[in-house]
C-alpha cells in the first residue's frame, strides 16, 4: 500500500538520495528574490506551488486544505528564491498589514485567476493591487496566470485570456500607466503550461540571461543541436534556452526526459555505503551524470542530457545531421560550455 502517494501530509522537500540531488539547506530566506502567489480563494495558488515545488501529482491537489496563513517556501537552486503563498481572503493593503515587509524585495507578483469561475471580482482586486503597486513599487513584475484553462475549449480559452487582458490593460491606461510590467499566461497544472509560465517568470529575474542564451546559441550552432534547454532539475523550470523558436512540445519532451532520468537515478542511486567512497577514489569515475536516448526509427542521437552542476542540467534535442559517432565531440563542446557557465554563474559549483 505504501506505493500510493500520501495525500494528507504535505510532502517534505525531496530528500537528495540520487546523484543529481540537492541538499536542503535551511538558511533563513532573507535577501532572496521573492515570488508572491496571490489571487482569489480557490483559484489554485496552493495547488500550483505544490505541483511545481513539491511534485505533488495534480490529481492529489483536490485534497489540499484551504490556506489560512501566509506560507513561505524557500527554493534552493541555481539561485535562491522564496515563494510566498497567500491566503485568498486577506486584504494586503489593509493598514494593519506591513505592506513594506511584504512587497519589499519581491521579484514578481504572480496573480492567479480561475478561468473557469466568474472572474470579474478577481480582476477588480487585481487592478486595485496593480495600481497600488505602481505607486509604491513600480518595478515589480506582475505576472497574471489565467489558471485552470484545461477545462476550456481552445476558442473559449483564447476569448477568456483576451477579455482578461483587455480589462486589466484598460484599467491601467485609464489611470495613466501605459507600460506597466504586466504579462499574461494561460496555465494548468494538468499539463506543462504551469512550468512553462514559471520558467518565463523566473527568467525575467536572471540578470545573466542574455549571456546564457548566447552561450547556448553557440553550442547549438557548433554541435547541430536542434534545441537546447538549461533546466533546473528539481523544479523542472528552464532558466534559459537558445534563441531559436520555442514550442511547448520540445519543452515537454525534455521535461519528461528529466523525470525519467531522475526517477531511475532515485531507484538505483541509493546509498551503498563504503562502496561509494571507493568509487570516489577511483579516478575514472565520472562526476557528471549523463544520459542518452536513441530512437529506433531514427539512427541519430535523439536526446542528450548532461548534468552541468549541482542544480542544472543541459538537455539537447539533437538535429538530424548530428550522428552518434560525433558524440565525443559533443561531449567536449558541452564541457567547454560547462566551464563558461561556471564563470557566468559562480553559484552551484561542486
Amino acid at each position: 500500500m505504501e506505493d500510493l502517494p500520501d495525500a494528507d501530509i504535505p510532502p517534505s522537500p525531496v530528500q537528495p538520495r540520487y546523484h543529481t540531488g540537492r541538499f536542503p539547506n535551511n538558511k533563513a530566506g532573507d535577501g532572496k528574490p521573492r515570488l508572491l502567489l496571490m489571487g482569489q480563494r480557490r483559484s489554485g495558488k496552493s495547488s500550483i506551488s505544490s505541483v511545481v515545488f513539491h511534485k505533488l501529482p495534480p490529481s492529489e491537489t483536490l485534497y489540499l486544505e484551504t490556506t489560512t496563513r501566509i506560507k513561505k517556501e524557500s527554493m534552493h537552486s541555481f539561485m535562491d528564491f522564496q515563494v510566498w503563498d497567500f491566503p485568498g481572503h486577506l486584504d494586503y493593503f489593509d493598514p494593519a498589514f506591513d505592506v513594506d515587509n511584504i512587497f519589499d524585495e519581491i521579484g514578481a507578483l504572480i496573480w492567479v485567476i480561475d478561468a473557469q469561475d466568474e472572474y470579474l471580482d478577481a480582476i477588480v482586486r487585481l487592478n486595485a493591487t496593480i495600481l497600488n503597486l505602481q505607486q509604491t513599487y513600480p518595478n515589480i513584475n506582475v505576472e497574471v496566470f489565467v489558471h485552470k484553462v484545461d477545462g476550456l475549449s481552445d476558442d473559449f480559452r483564447n476569448e477568456v485570456i483576451q477579455d482578461i487582458t483587455q480589462r486589466v490593460m484598460d484599467e491601467l491606461s485609464d489611470n495613466g500607466y501605459e507600460n506597466a510590467p504586466v504579462s499574461f499566461y494561460s496555465t494548468s497544472i494538468y499539463d506543462h503550461s504551469i512550468f512553462d509560465a514559471f520558467s518565463k517568470v523566473i527568467q525575467k529575474l536572471i540578470p545573466q540571461l542574455p549571456t546564457l542564451e548566447a552561450l547556448l546559441d553557440s553550442l547549438c550552432r557548433n554541435c547541430h543541436i536542434e534545441k537546447a534547454y538549461l533546466f533546473d532539475v528539481l523544479s523542472k523550470i528552464y532558466i534559459a534556452t537558445d534563441t531559436s523558436p520555442t514550442d511547448i512540445g520540445s519543452y515537454e519532451i525534455c521535461s519528461d526526459y528529466i523525470d525519467v532520468v531522475v526517477d531511475v537515478s532515485e531507484i538505483y542511486g541509493w546509498d551503498r555505503g563504503d562502496e561509494e567512497a571507493q568509487a570516489r577514489n577511483n579516478e575514472n569515475a565520472i562526476n557528471d551524470a549523463e544520459s542518452l536516448i536513441t530512437l529506433e526509427k531514427k539512427s541519430n542521437n535523439y536526446l542528450y542530457l548532461r548534468e552541468i552542476n549541482k542544480y542544472l542540467a543541459l538537455i539537447c534535442l539533437m538535429g538530424d545531421d548530428s550522428p552518434a559517432d560525433k558524440k565525443p565531440l559533443i561531449d567536449y563542446n558541452v564541457g567547454v560550455f560547462q566551464e563558461a557557465l561556471a564563470q557566468v554563474f559562480p553559484r552551484g559549483e561542486k
Binding site: 540520487y18 537515478s265 568509487a279 569515475a285 536513441t294 530512437l295
Partner: peptide, 9 residues
C-alpha cells in the same frame, strides 16, 4: 533503441 544513464553511483 537504447537509453543510457551514467552517474557516479
Amino acid at each position: 533503441a537504447e537509453m543510457q544513464i551514467k552517474t557516479g553511483r
